[in-house]
Design a protein around this nucleic acid. Structure first.
Lengths: 209, 209
DNA sequence: TAGATTGTTAATCGATTAACAATC
DNA sequence: TAGATTGTTAATCGATTAACAATC
């Protein structure tokens, strides 16, 4: 509730807390202490209390936090108290898999558009969505006022399409390509190339085998 | 070359440098300064020099770094001077997409096994690999000495399968599920659930629309 | 040689942890 | 009430940035 800027590293942990709290709610729990939550999330009690305190005092001394209240608060903070429509760019294997992915529903995400440039892919149905041609991408996204896109195209097409997305009003891009995207600072990018994440772990595997 | 422990945050940036250097090599460049590399990677010259200095002095004053030498060094540091065999657990849409993903080849990763528990999926061919039953997973992985696995199963099966993987000798797991995995400290986990990454960006989208 | 750029040290900045008064 | 646990402040730790002598 304060007007202070919250560090991005704090923001990045909130979805984890939310995820874990939802699980706890499913297990029938009603209340949680920072110590319990920390154990489940793999963090520390102090960090959780500090993180939450950026947004207000949601807990009660001696008792801890109401799981339902905390879920509600985190959803509001993360703007998850609504459904965000998302466009997928690239109808290859990965784009298709994401379009059909069940995990988006109930978590604030609705895939409503998917684009490709191959004539034999355009017009295909994936789940309930028909693949459109990238030529109409900017117009379609602008028209629907879509702010979030997922990029699953070959690396050499990534930057140019990302530029188009930014011009069409997209403010958040989940980037599955290995490319580093250069975009205006008001466009948020999260990189999610599996190769980079695997390579990072390989460093620690040196002595094995 | 020193014996000091290198911070993980430094390690996490090396694959980015490597990726960008490979691109520069493709573009025909031979030499790069920390300033140039920083610009392409979206970092700072000081940080790049500091990061690289953990491993030795690869540059030349007045000139910068030889791109080929630096690529070579980074590949050695990250243990990418060999091919790592990887198992995929879960032959759903995502597991299949990753099995067919072209981006692994030439980047040190070879998908050699894929597992599922659905009788009608086991035995299917995906690319050149036949889906095996999870019942034989631990044995198959142990036998081949595989150290890296990618987890693309429904969330509620994730922890138990991760335990099995750890017991079978796996030391690195790329986790596509929303579950927080609890594993022995010698098993490295990278979480790559798209929902968590999207939710993180939604925080910043509050004022839009 | 003069200009450029490294590797490294010291200064700064920011994030995490520890501690504890407040209070349910 | 006594025990538990919060929210917050201060202390610590670690990462980033700035500066510059060394040197190609």
């Amino acid at each position: 509730m304060t007007n202070e800027i919250v560090p991005d590293i704090v923001i990045s942990r909130l979805p984890w807390y939310l995820q874990t709290l939802n699980q706890m709610a499913k297990e029938g729990l009603h209340t949680v202490s920072s110590t319990m939550l920390a154990e489940r999330v793999g963090s520390t009690a102090a960090q959780i209390r500090k993180d939450l305190s950026y947004f207000g005092g949601f807990g009660k001394q001696g008792t801890g936090y109401s799981i339902y209240t905390l879920i509600d608060q985190l959803q509001q903070i993360l703007n998850l108290d609504r459904v965000w429509r998302v466009a997928i760019v690239g109808a290859g294997d990965l784009g298709r898999a994401l379009t059909r992915y069940k995990g988006f529903a109930n978590r604030g995400i609705d895939i409503v558009l998917i684009f490709d440039n191959h004539p034999n892919v355009v017009g295909q149905k994936i789940g309930s969505i028909t693949v459109r041609h990238v030529e109409t991408m900017a117009a379609d996204i602008w028209e629907l006022g879509i702010k979030i896109a997922i990029l699953t195209v070959p690396g050499d097409a990534a930057q140019s399409l990302a530029n188009d997305l930014a011009k069409a009003g997209v403010k958040a891009i989940l980037n599955y390509t290995p490319q580093t995207l250069m975009l205006p600072p008001d466009v948020h990018v999260q990189n999610i190339d599996p190769v980079l994440q695997l390579q990072r772990m390989m460093y620690y595997l040196g002595d094995d085998q």
